Simulated assay, not measured.
Amino acid sequence: MGTVTNITKAKFSVGDLIHHRLFGYRGVITDVDRNFQLTDDWYEQVAKSRPPKNKPWYNVLVHGSIHSTYVAEQNLMPDDILEPISNPQLKQFFSTLENGRYIRNKPMN
């Protein structure tokens, strides 16, 4: 018998536009972690709603801001506006917005 692994499938992918359920901001996902990857101190200080650490977490560029943030999947929902995100870091990750989804930059070698 093989071992059963409990792999959590992320609901969102890099380039997806999201809306934060609690704080109402829009953003775009730049990276996906299968589970929480920051420190316990960060979690205690920042993750006030105590979302599960064993579910996906996302790095998100926040629309209308110079910031990015780290967000638990339970706090995100798909963005239905599908308009471009304004964040100065955007061009570091993506080349264009197509059909409501950002396309990653091509790697430069």
Results as ranks from 00 to 15, higher is better:
Val28Leu: 06
Pro56Trp: 07
Glu73Asn: 09
Lys55Tyr: 03
Val71Glu: 15
Gln89Gly: 14
Trp42His: 11
Ser68Phe: 08
Ile7Gly: 12
Lys48Ala: 14
Gly15Arg: 04
Lys11Ile: 02
Val14Asp: 02
Phe93Gln: 08
Met1Tyr: 14
Lys55Ile: 01
Tyr102Arg: 04
Asn109Ala: 13
Thr39Arg: 04
Thr5Asp: 14
Leu61Asp: 09
Leu97Lys: 03
Asp31Ser: 12
Glu83Asp: 12
Met108Ser: 14
Tyr25Val: 01
Phe94Ala: 13
Asp31Arg: 01
Asn87Lys: 05
His19Met: 13
Gly100Asn: 02
Gly64Asn: 11
Phe36Gly: 07
Thr69Phe: 10
Leu97Ser: 06
Gly15Phe: 09
Leu76Asp: 09
Arg26Gly: 12
Val46Pro: 00
Arg101Pro: 06
Lys55Ala: 10
Val28Gln: 01
Ala72Asn: 11
Gln74Arg: 07
Lys9Leu: 13
Lys106Ser: 15
Ile103Met: 10
Thr30Ile: 07
Gln45Ala: 15
Gly100Phe: 00
Ser95Val: 00
Gly24Met: 06
Asp80His: 07
Ala47Val: 01
Pro107Glu: 06
Arg34Ile: 06
Tyr70Val: 00
Glu98Asp: 04
Asn59Lys: 05
Gly27Ala: 08
Tyr102Met: 03
Arg104Ala: 13
Pro56Cys: 08
Lys53Ile: 09
Ala47Asn: 11
Thr96His: 04
Arg101Phe: 05
Ile81Met: 08
His20Ser: 14
Gln37His: 07
Arg101Ile: 03
Tyr25Gly: 09
Thr5Cys: 13
Phe36Trp: 02
Pro88His: 06
Arg26Thr: 09
Lys9Asp: 14
Pro88Gly: 13
Arg104Ile: 02
Trp57Arg: 05
Gly15His: 11
Leu38Tyr: 09
Gln74Ala: 14
Ile7Asn: 12
Pro51Cys: 12
Ser13Leu: 08
Lys9Val: 12
Ala10Tyr: 00
Gly24Lys: 07
Met77His: 06
Arg26His: 14
Lys55Met: 06
Val60Gln: 00
Ile18His: 01
Lys106Trp: 01
His20Val: 08
Arg34Ser: 15
Arg101His: 11
Ser49Trp: 05
Met77Trp: 02
Tyr70Leu: 02
Met1Ile: 12
Ile7Phe: 10
Ala47Ile: 00
Arg26Ala: 14
Tyr58Gly: 01
Phe94Gly: 10
Asn35His: 08
Val28Glu: 04
Pro52Ile: 00
Arg104Thr: 04
Asn35Thr: 06
Arg34Cys: 13
Tyr25Thr: 00
Leu61Ala: 15
Asn87Leu: 10
Gly100Thr: 01
Asp41His: 11
Asp16Leu: 02
Leu61Lys: 07
Ile29Phe: 05
Tyr25Met: 05
Ile103Thr: 06
Gly2Arg: 05
Arg101Asn: 10
Val60Lys: 00
Leu17Thr: 05
Met108His: 10
Leu17Phe: 06
Asp41Gly: 12
Gly24Val: 02
Pro84Tyr: 04
Tyr43Asn: 12
